[in-house]
């Protein structure tokens, strides 16, 4: 069995990527299982999706604990405790990473050596070919298909299955073109082989859950307004940047920010809390003097 785990943020299309791979594998005659898992979070929050390809009926469910391939849509996920994309990777795992960095710039990721990390700027590929970030799903789904040894026609069949029927013919064509480019980009990379052996399960220690007093045992929170400990700044794809010389200190950005991620300094200049700003860009859009610009995150 081949186990592929996709990590992305809500809105990056990793559920679709997992389905493109699943459909491609299905067309290639594999027995397939794919499923997404998302918490309550929305756009920008970490999510993951799983695809399994096998020659025998698949008797696994839910999360993939030991992936053969991890696809990472966004490098910021590496440091995100809510994502932990490298969990369960071992020396036989491969990583496919969407990054602006060159492969040579990458350091080993946990147990995964540099030789098993394949990286490319799929965001740029997507933007060039389809002018849409939503196409990242196509690029990564197809690249993953190639890494697993599926043919271009099988990969394209997967893409065709999963593209929204609502897309215009032009957008469909652009996505197919992107699939071809992404497949080509991955063509130099070695093909991942199925593991020949099954690891024996590692025995875990089961512990007692003892009685705790009601001050502890109810799902209540006494640490009031502690949500900023949970940084949502890495949800951003673009960051608002203030050009103070254009700012008239009108308060509009401060009032509009749904997140309370913009404060005012002593002189009424806005201060963006980049730890928290989710990058909705309302402030950029609303600023009457265009004192904010949106800049793509480089991470």
């Amino acid at each position: 069995m081949l186990r592929i785990r996709f990590h992305g943020r809500g809105g990056q299309g990793m559920k679709t990527a997992s389905r493109i791979l699943g459909s491609a594998g299905f067309h290639a005659g594999w027995i397939v299982q794919d499923s997404p898992v998302y918490g309550a979070e929305r756009r920008g929050a970490p999510m993951s999706a799983f695809t399994r390809l096998a020659r025998e009926p698949i008797r696994e469910r839910g999360v993939i604990a030991s992936p053969d391939l991890v696809v990472i849509a966004d490098e910021t996920l590496l440091a995100d405790l809510a994502a932990q994309p490298l969990l369960g990777c071992d020396t036989r795992s491969t990583v496919l990473m969407n990054t602006r960095k060159q492969s040579a710039e990458l350091s080993p990721l946990g147990a995964v050596s540099r030789e098993a990390i394949f990286a490319a700027d799929f965001t740029a590929l997507a933007l060039e070919t389809t002018q849409s970030l939503a196409s990242l799903s196509v690029a990564l789904g197809v690249a993953a298909a190639r890494l697993l040894g599926l043919s271009l026609s099988e990969a394209l069949a997967g893409v065709t299955d999963e593209l929204s029927p609502h897309l215009s013919a032009e957008r469909q064509a652009k996505n197919v073109a992107l699939a071809q480019v992404a497949y080509a980009r991955a063509e130099g990379w070695p093909i991942i082989q199925e593991r020949q052996t099954t690891d024996s399960p590692t025995l875990v220690t089961l512990v007692e859950v003892a009685f705790d007093p009601p001050t502890v045992a109810a799902p209540s929170i006494y640490a009031i307004s502690n949500s900023p400990e949970r940084k949502t700044g890495n949800w951003r794809q673009f960051r608002p940047v203030l050009h103070a010389e254009l700012c008239t200190r009108c308060w509009i950005c401060f009032v509009r920010c749904p997140e309370a991620a913009i404060a005012l300094d002593a002189h009424d200049y806005p201060v963006v809390d980049y730890d928290q700003c989710k990058g909705c860009l309302l402030c950029v859009h609303e600023c009457p003097t265009h004192a904010f610009t949106a800049e793509q995150e480089v991470r």
Binding site: G39, A40, F211, D212, P214, A217, A218, P219, S220, I224
Partner: peptide, 25 residues
Amino acid sequence: KPMAQGTAVLGGAPYSYFRYQQQRA
């Protein structure tokens, strides 16, 4: 003395903990 009660608990492990506390009680 504000507090948040009845909060959403996402994830099986903390949910298991809170539910099993009712068994212990």
